[in-house]
Amino acid sequence: MGVVVPLEDERVRSQNAVAQLQALVREDMEDVNEFIRDRMASDVPMIPELASHLINSGGKRLRPMLTIAASRLCGYQGSDHIKLAASVEFLHTATLLHDDVVDESDLRRGKKTARMLWGNQASVLVGDFLLGRAFRLMVETKSLRALEIIANAASVIAEGEVMQLAAAKDTGTTEDAYMRVIAAKTAALFAAAAEIGAVVAARSTGETAALESYGRNLGIAFQLIDDALDYGGRAASLGKNVGDDFRERKITLPVVLAFRRGGKEERAFWERTLREGDQREGDLEHAQGLMAKHGTIEDTIARARHYGAIAKDALAIFPENAYSTALLDLVDFCISRTY
């Protein structure tokens, strides 16, 4: 029994929002992509080959676009935002390579993961290479504050990964504990990507903090929708199979809520399938049914909307213009997306 996320009415609007943002930052993003291609170069053939597999696999480049839009919102007219945006994408790609190894994922964006094609060791090492490239680009900007922000984000993301690993398959995970994981694992890079846009423009502490808050809350909303889509989305638009989180025994918010709200028999089901890993035919459909019974998909989306509203409010400090409008619309995309 499937649970389709009720976001279809908003899907077209969200796609238009991303198209508008892409059009607004197109020239800058062309430069970012050129930097990425140039800095992926290596005398070791496997490095650009493996990195290109993921970087060119169809991602929307939301995080570097966030850096570009934030810097332009702050009136920046230089070129260092290009290097910072490229470094953000390198850091993001490195974390994806590492994530797929830790999670033992087979697919990403509908394609075989790098670890499936080149192996775990190569994926980890190329991820390390990209981290090095990211920090080298940041050093070139000579912005110590931007370097500090990204370096802190990298360590926080790693902490989030370790927290998630420690809580893996733990059906006793609380909502607060789970929110701490995604605040670190996902939201930290969104926050950093937006914040450095203000830093490179040398804007006030208030504006810098506002963009950090915008990015952080946007990132939380983004991840919560990911959680909902894994049980209520469609494989063709997800770029992976519906229920991959269930099969990989991940504890996400819909599971946390369903476990808390269920009775003894329902909790025993979650214990068997996620903690013990004893999954049988029909278990995914049963899990979806329990989520429908307790409204956990809808409540996960509601929480995402809450954080999205906080992200929008953070931008109120800025004057209304094309960039502020695009960033506001990006919140709607992240919440309304079906892919």
Rank of each mutant, 00 (worst) to 15 (best):
R260S: 14
Y214M: 04
G239V: 10
K250I: 05
S213P: 00
R216K: 13
G232S: 11
G239D: 10
L238S: 13
E265I: 01
N217C: 05
R249S: 12
S237N: 14
P254R: 02
S213R: 14
F246C: 07
I251K: 07
K264D: 15
S237H: 14
F259M: 07
F269W: 01
R261K: 15
Y231Q: 06
S213V: 02
L238A: 11
R234H: 15
Q223F: 06
G233Y: 04
A235V: 05
R267D: 12
T273I: 13
L253F: 07
E266G: 09
A258C: 06
Y214H: 00
I220L: 04
E248S: 11
A221P: 05
R234Y: 13
F259D: 05
A258D: 00
L238C: 12
A236V: 14
Y231L: 15
G219E: 08
S237W: 11
L224M: 08
W270K: 01
D230A: 05
L257Q: 10
R234T: 15
V256C: 02
G233F: 08
A258E: 04
G262S: 15
Q223P: 03
G233P: 01
V255G: 03
A258Y: 00
R272P: 07
F246D: 00
K240Q: 12
R216M: 08
L238R: 08
Y231A: 13
V255E: 02
D245E: 06
G243N: 07
R247C: 00
E266A: 08
E248Y: 04
D230Q: 07
L224Q: 02
E265M: 06
Q223L: 01
E271N: 13
K264C: 12
N217K: 07
A221M: 04
A236T: 14
D244I: 01
A235C: 10
R261D: 15
L257H: 12
G232C: 03
F269M: 07
N217D: 04
V242T: 14
E248M: 09
N241G: 14
R216C: 03
K250H: 12
N241D: 15
D244K: 11
R272C: 00
G262W: 12
S237I: 11
P254G: 07
I251S: 07
G263M: 13
D245P: 06
V255H: 02
K250S: 08
